[in-house]
Design a protein around this nucleic acid. Structure first.
Lengths: 308, 308
DNA sequence: TCATTATGGTAAGATAAACTTATGAATGCG
DNA sequence: CGCATTCATAAGTTTATCTTACCATAATGA
């Protein structure tokens, strides 16, 4: 188990391979071309394999070299990025937030300016993605998920349990006249959401009617079907039907009067929303600040008086 | 624009921060504790900021240190991985393949052993994901996509244009009796696929009937709806209905007689499947080999005699 | 309590890695 | 051809890195 080659030789190799010339690499590293040549020779010696074909005083990468170059380049770019951020005067906080895609499209971006206003400048990365989440590979600092996913070295905390509400535009409700009971909904165009494997346990219209003690027939499968809450909300806003939408997403439109609830009956979800934070990030100031703010915003949306 | 700190000092910092002790870092780097202390002091000096709180001969990371540690660790791990793979005797080829999720679940894994048998050992990473693809961030060597996505420094090549075929189990077909024309399909349970935003232009049952010059009523929306080809195929295999499935996925089951085509009419897709290869990877042996093999496998499935 | 053993910091000197300069050979270009 | 550019090699220098030695502090345990 020999020692690994020195980082300096790898650095020289990376620069030369990327630029395609020892001379250019030398300029980049502010050293002489001869030094580059020697470093690379040392590395080739150490790993026991040529990394450049020396053909005509010109060097082209060997297969082995070509194979590893992109990985090295990416890794060194990251190292240099870290170094630069350490050297920068006032270091900007960095925060990687992972949320379900539906939250990433509109709910979160709308509210982010508020957080930035409260907390000050920060480099925030929002990732819209579904379980399973690669906390370590993607260096995620905080994740909002539907349901609790406990892991070693991660702190998971339930925030609030949401519910789904039937919502549609006021115009659509007017057109179909006021409803007397839940059964009248069956006559209106329903917007279905197919949650996919991610959250198969989410309530459907069928589930909602059953919770209202109404046994729906096959006809409820009619109408539009989409595969995300965001899309369902958009269709509802466009007046195309009644969507069964989480409070989290529907609250704002209902508060503004752009959507109404034809029937004030909601169906609670099986799982709460949870915030998961890897322990390595739990103590960082930005992360703690964001965690608190995020939880409050979720609760505010879900428990909006407009949905009471 | 000051020079960046030397990699060696960053390496020492990373080891000390990760292990939580200068002494442990020294052991890891096979140098003396004093050397670690000096390297870190040099780094702190260079970036003009303390990275450890020295409290009681014990060091704990400062906020600045905690902020950058995970990024540094990940980057150095990658560098070390590269170094190790260079030192390893016979280097194993490494290949990162990106395909649509549906292809990643079953079609590709089934066929990979064949490629490995032909080409020899290799470290193959299969990523199931949808457009847009982050070729550079994820260092992808080759991508199969539905439709052509041209980019700078990428080579995109159409492979074959697939078609969708109605398929169901022989048992289901028998139960509903032989069909005389396409219109009879309307009486059978249809399995719908909702492609989502990724490939909105994919044909639906409605499109298929229209191509057959049949104007379907609202009733065709009945039945099951799933959001992936793979799921639709599974449901069809379970005898739950007729799915409209790409030749790529259906070919094998039809060849084996597990599925049949109640009507031999297919509907061609709007876009061909394409293989995209970043130029940096185009000349690598594994990549070229895989590209050729992959294209042939796709064509074989799509043009299977069983679907003729 | 008082060694014992750990931690990290500092100073001085040693060593080896890294670098420069100088030179040569091969190539391409005007 | 003459000139610029490329990389390789050799010899000598610089300096970053490392060791050794010694100190201070704190926790551990007999």
């Amino acid at each position: 188990m020999n020692a690994l080659p020195s980082l300096r030789t790898l650095q020289a190799f990376e620069a030369a391979a990327r630029t395609g010339s020892f001379a250019a690499a030398a300029r980049e590293l502010s050293i002489s071309p001869a030094a580059v040549s020697q470093l690379i020779a040392t590395l080739e010696d150490h790993v026991g394999r040529k990394l450049f074909h020396r053909i005509n005083r010109r060097s082209v990468l060997t297969e082995a070299g070509r194979e590893v170059l992109p990985r090295l380049t990416l890794a060194f770019e990251e190292v240099n990025g870290v170094a630069r951020s350490l050297m920068g005067g006032a270091q900007r906080a960095r925060l990687v937030v992972s949320v379900p895609s539906s939250v990433a499209t509109s709910w979160l971006p709308q509210r982010l300016p508020d957080f930035i206003g409260l907390h000050g400048e920060a480099d925030i990365f929002v990732r819209g993605e579904e379980e399973p989440i690669a906390f370590e590979r993607d260096l995620i600092d905080i994740r909002l998920s539907y349901g609790r996913f406990d892991q070693r070295d991660h702190d998971a905390e339930p925030i609030v349990t949401d519910a789904v509400h039937p919502v549609c535009t006021p115009a659509l409700l007017k057109k179909h006249g006021p409803l007397r009971d839940a059964r009248d909904l069956l006559a209106m165009p329903l917007i279905h959401t197919d949650w996919g494997p991610a959250a198969a346990a989410f309530p459907s219209w069928r589930g909602w009617f059953e919770a209202m003690s109404i046994a729906p027939g096959r006809e409820i499968q009619r109408g539009l079907t989409v595969n995300s809450s965001a899309a369902a909300l958009d269709l509802a806003l466009a007046g195309l039907g009644i969507a069964l939408c989480q409070g989290l997403f529907a609250a704002e439109a209902v508060e503004q009067g752009r959507l109404v609830r034809p029937i004030g009956r909601a169906l609670e979800l099986n799982q709460p929303y949870c915030l998961t934070v890897p322990l390595r990030s739990a103590r960082r100031a930005v992360v703690m600040a964001f965690r608190g703010w995020f939880a409050v915003e979720c609760v505010k949306s879900v428990n909006s008086p407009a949905l009471a």
